[in-house]
């Protein structure tokens, strides 16, 4: 269609005006000190706390191929609450810092501070509160199997209700299956994506609503399905939404920023509760 051509013509004539080689000049690149990037999601309902530390790579002044940033192994990672602190050791096989939740004594409703420092003196902190309430209203409403020649199609419907009056509640919904793809193979675990329903939920303007979901998957045999309803803090919700929507944009749209609650750094430190419903077949 020629209209596309025209809009291109319109814009390109603008750029043409500007396109003379002489009118392009180098600009001093902005100064940037690499920042520590910290990711950790903690819950009193889980067995372990994991903290991952890396750093950001400046866009300018580095070869464009130099993208990945290695995990940082020599950081000091300290979890604090009310003057008490515990240091998390680095574990090479997870490439993160980890301790059992029982050692840290995580409790719902409590606020924790995470302090990460590296030998060159950079230090960042994050703070989060593990929600005191855990939403346990998730229920499976139906599992339908449509047998096929070899694989069957499984369709799941489930729902949960926002059970805390007042806005400001946030949730994350997650589901996975344990399936076999043929009679001989070992059971395989796979994430279930939703045909209907949101992964990250805010009850803004929807206080006390019921949220319904539908998902389906093909498998030779379904062994087990697990649904998880996470009651999260707001930062958890904001962060994941911003990562999901992140785009560098075309020149005519606004770039989307990725949320961080790590002071002097990047990344996320947030708390959640988890309620699990499992059904075996």
């Amino acid at each position: 269609m020629k209209t596309q051509y025209l809009s291109a013509l319109l814009l390109s004539s603008l750029l043409l005006l500007a396109g003379c080689e002489k009118m392009v000049t180098d600009v001093d690149i902005p100064e940037y000190e690499p920042k520590l990037v910290v990711h950790s999601f903690i819950s009193s309902d889980e067995a372990h706390i994991n903290v991952y530390v890396s750093e950001s790579i400046p866009v300018f002044g580095k070869p464009s191929s130099d993208v990945a940033s290695e995990p940082i192994a020599n950081a000091t990672v300290v979890l604090r609450r009310n003057g008490q602190s515990i240091t998390l050791p680095y574990e090479g096989y997870t490439a993160g810092y980890s301790i059992p939740v029982v050692d840290a004594g995580l409790q719902p409703g409590r606020t924790y501070t995470l302090e990460v420092s590296v030998p060159d003196g950079r230090q960042v902190t994050g703070e989060c509160t593990i929600p005191s309430h855990r939403n346990e209203t998730l229920e499976i409403t139906s599992v339908i199997k449509e047998a096929g020649e070899f694989d069957s199609l499984y369709t799941f419907q489930f729902r949960f209700r926002d059970d805390q009056a007042g806005e400001g509640n946030h949730y994350r919904v997650f589901a996975y299956l344990k399936v076999r793809f043929d009679p001989q193979s070992e059971p395989y675990v796979q994430e279930l994506s939703f045909d209907k329903g949101e992964v990250y939920v805010s009850d803004e303007n929807r206080d006390l609503s019921t949220f319904t979901y539908r998902a389906s998957a093909y498998a030779y045999k379904l062994e087990e399905v697990t649904f998880k309803l996470l009651t999260t803090d707001e930062d958890y919700y904001t962060y994941h939404r911003s990562v999901n929507f992140h785009s560098d944009g075309d020149p005519f749209s606004e770039p989307t920023l990725v949320f961080t609650n790590i002071r002097d750094g990047l990344g996320i430190f947030s708390g959640y509760r988890v309620y699990t419903v499992t059904q075996t077949f």
Binding site: P30, Y32, P34, K35, V37, H39, F41, E46, A47, H48, N50, Y52, S54, E55, S56, I57, P58, V59, F60, V67, A68, S69, P71, Y93, T94, A95, G96, S98, P100, R172, F174, Y176, V189, E191, T226, K228, L230, Y236, H240, V243, N244, H246, D248, E254, P255, L257, V258, L266, G267, Y272, V274
Partner: peptide, 24 residues
């Protein structure tokens, strides 16, 4: 608004299979 640096943003994966063994 100018991109100054780049990094990996990890998204939470709540479906840990073997507790404590989740690698990034």
């Amino acid at each position: 608004t100018l991109p100054l640096a780049e990094y990996y943003a990890i998204m939470h994966y709540p479906g840990s299979i073997e507790p404590g063994t989740m690698s990034w």
